[in-house]
Amino acid sequence: MTEEKKQVTTDIVIIGGGTAGLTAAIYAVRAGKQVIVLEAKAYGGQIVNTPDIENYPGLAHVSGYDFATGLYQQAIDLGARFRYERALGIREDDEGKIVETRKREYHCKAVILATGAKNRTLGIEREEELTGKGVSYCATCDGSFFKGQDVAVNGGGNTALEDALYLADICNRVYLIHRRDQFRGDAADVEKLKQKNNVEFVLNSNVTGLIGSDKLTAVEVTDKISGEKRELPVSGLFVAIGQVPDNKAFADEVDLAPAGYIEAGEDCATRTPGIFTAGDCRTKTVRQLTTAAADGAVAALAACRYIGA
């Protein structure tokens, strides 16, 4: 016999507790709406692992943890309710939307999808096996375990550059592997890395193999131009090659782009009236803290207008 789910009623359900979701909660509660934020893991999203944020207006230096905690506490203090539950899907009834989790059904008038994105994997042999045994996707989470050792970072965007800078200060040597001949991240960070004597750029190269029995001892890289293979003796590999969204559970209610992001413009409205989206999970050209916060504000105000007074 299936256990009956508990019924909860609110004005707005926000799915995702990162920068976009928490900003949306702040704006919606200040507009006088009852808000519940559903988060499957932990508040803050991926920014919580960033040691130093330098590009958020008005905050020259702040840790990702402090930034996320400030947002979370502000939303809670204003009256938003936070639940650690994974949203399994959305359906509609005559009175509005129903967001379903494993134990509850949340009845609401509007939904904001702020699910963010998760780390992209290399997709090579033994990656899953060696994850946690030398392979990591978060340098600030796991970097301290490799203090004084040789490590590699794979990627060419801002996250990879930031990871390499962080690791260069605590590790013996850092190899920065990128599949192109130029980095996509901030030029200022590239220049900082060039000044580090213990950082080596390995460009036009892909990680093609993971070596080690019980733990990682080396990575194999292949030069894309010459085809030459090289082994880098490292005890840690930090993968920073982008993110993928987690929106499949909502595919019946919103349109998804080929890469899985929710189709929505700057108005943050999806094809379904009453369902909005914000942050890294939607189609956009720039994914930064500032754009996530902006999306959260736009989506919240749009949801409030949709609901009405």
Rank of each mutant, 00 (worst) to 15 (best):
I211Q: 05
T131M: 05
A240D: 11
T140Y: 12
E128T: 11
F201N: 02
D255T: 15
P233M: 04
E125W: 05
D163M: 14
D255R: 04
N158V: 11
C138Y: 08
Y137Q: 09
K194H: 00
L193E: 01
A168S: 15
N204I: 00
P233L: 03
A152H: 01
G134R: 14
G227K: 07
G132W: 05
G155N: 12
N198C: 12
E220F: 05
G242H: 01
F145C: 07
D169S: 15
R184I: 06
V190N: 05
E191L: 14
K133E: 14
F201S: 04
A218V: 12
I211C: 03
T159V: 14
A240G: 10
G148A: 12
A187Q: 11
V190M: 04
V254C: 01
G236W: 11
V135Y: 06
L161G: 03
I211R: 04
L130F: 10
E200G: 13
D255V: 10
C141T: 05
N247L: 08
N172D: 08
F146K: 01
E127R: 10
R179N: 02
N198M: 04
E191G: 06
A160C: 05
V135L: 12
I211S: 03
Y166T: 10
E220I: 06
T208R: 10
I177E: 01
F146V: 10
G236N: 10
K133Y: 15
V199Y: 05
L176H: 08
G157Y: 15
L176Y: 11
L237K: 12
R180T: 08
T159P: 05
N247W: 03
P233R: 14
S213Y: 12
Q149D: 10
G227N: 07
V207Q: 11
L256Y: 04
A139Y: 04
G148N: 08
I124Y: 00
L193K: 01
G123I: 13
V219E: 10
T131G: 03
L193Q: 02
K224D: 13
E191D: 15
N154I: 07
K229L: 09
A139G: 11
T217L: 05
D214K: 12
L130Y: 11
C138T: 09
V174N: 10
S235H: 10
L216I: 06
L167C: 09
G227Y: 14
G134V: 05
F201W: 01
E191V: 14
L165I: 13
L165M: 14
Y166A: 06
L216N: 01
G132C: 06
N172Q: 11
G185D: 12
D163L: 12
D189Q: 08
